[in-house]
């Protein structure tokens, strides 16, 4: 049974590879975004006269890591929507596979593609161009990997809620776009939490978005004290579970709706 899902992942990997110009574009986009952001922070720190300081190097590493994770975290947002609109979802449901596992393995296939052909080239370029700091320690790096995977799962389960809503709305471009905007602003993807207004930081920590970018990157940089790392990871895991549970309920409703509609 697992073989079927592996095949789905492989298929999705191959689908991605077909568009060669897409993956060159993906790498260049990432590099340009990193470049623009670092140029801005450079201008700020140059004015303060601390371009050589640790602070700037940490910030530059933060920016690079954030955009590398962003290239990795791109998913096919309209996979379910397209199936709902053209009706193929009903034949997918008839197949002896779990639909949600099918969607997940498809997404993981994309992840593998993005890891190998988007993130790695961008990472290698970044090491030469932007003086990426090494992880704080080997242990921190391992924690970072776990945290990044959890972050991916938080984002996946959050996305899934939007995707399933296509059973009701049919077009989800606006929902997806607004969700993306929220993730970008509230997760620390574009601006680290420590630069946010102080009143906001506590609220941001309570939301699921922090788990996606801020937590893994801060662990990599050694900014989270060792005894708080576990709390951070648990918080991420709880969000994965909560969002998964909500997704489960929505999915039940959606599949029931499809039956009522008669496919």
């Amino acid at each position: 049974m697992t073989r079927a899902y592996l095949e789905f992942a492989k298929k999705s990997f191959q689908n991605n590879i077909v568009y060669r110009s897409e993956y060159v574009a993906g790498v260049i986009n990432a590099i340009v975004m990193i470049f623009v952001n670092i140029a801005i922070w450079k201008a700020i720190y140059e004015e303060e006269g601390s371009l050589e300081g640790v602070q700037f190097k940490i910030l530059a590493t933060y920016i690079v890591l954030s955009f590398l994770l962003q290239t990795l975290y791109v998913m096919d947002e309209y996979f379910i929507e397209v199936k709902v609109r053209n009706g193929l979802v009903s034949s997918d449901l008839l197949k002896p596979i779990g639909f949600r596992l099918y969607v997940f393995s498809y997404t993981v296939g994309t992840l593998a593609f993005r890891f190998l052909l988007q993130m790695l080239p961008a990472l290698i370029l970044s090491i030469f161009l932007f003086h990426l700091l090494f992880p704080f320690s080997t242990v921190m790096f391992l924690y970072f990997l776990v945290s990044a995977i959890l972050g991916y799962l938080v984002l996946y389960n959050l996305n899934f809620l939007i995707w399933v809503s296509s059973f009701w709305f049919y077009w989800t471009f606006s929902l997806v776009t607004i969700k993306d905007a929220a993730v970008m602003l509230l997760s620390g993807a574009l601006i680290p939490f420590w630069f946010m207004p102080e009143g906001m930081i506590d609220t941001l920590q309570l939301l699921p978005f922090a788990s996606i970018y801020s937590t893994p990157i801060q662990i990599y940089l050694g900014m989270v004290p060792e005894d708080e790392i576990l709390t951070g990871l648990i918080r991420q895991a709880v969000w994965v579970l909560v969002l998964y549970a909500v997704g489960h309920v929505l999915w039940k409703g959606a599949s029931r709706k499809l039956v009522v509609q008669g496919g």
Binding site: I40, A43, I44, E46, E47, F173, S174, L175, V176, T177, I178, D180, A181, M184, L185, L190, I191, F195, M196, P197
Partner: peptide
């Protein structure tokens, strides 16, 4: 209207980030 709203939100990201940075640093060069 929802799409217009979504585009508005997407484009505001850059504005908000710029705003937050300058809230902190007051001016850049």
């Amino acid at each position: 209207s929802l799409i217009a709203l979504a585009i508005f939100c997407r484009e505001m990201i850059g504005v908000v980030v710029m705003f937050l940075i300058l809230l902190r640093f007051l001016h850049i060069r």
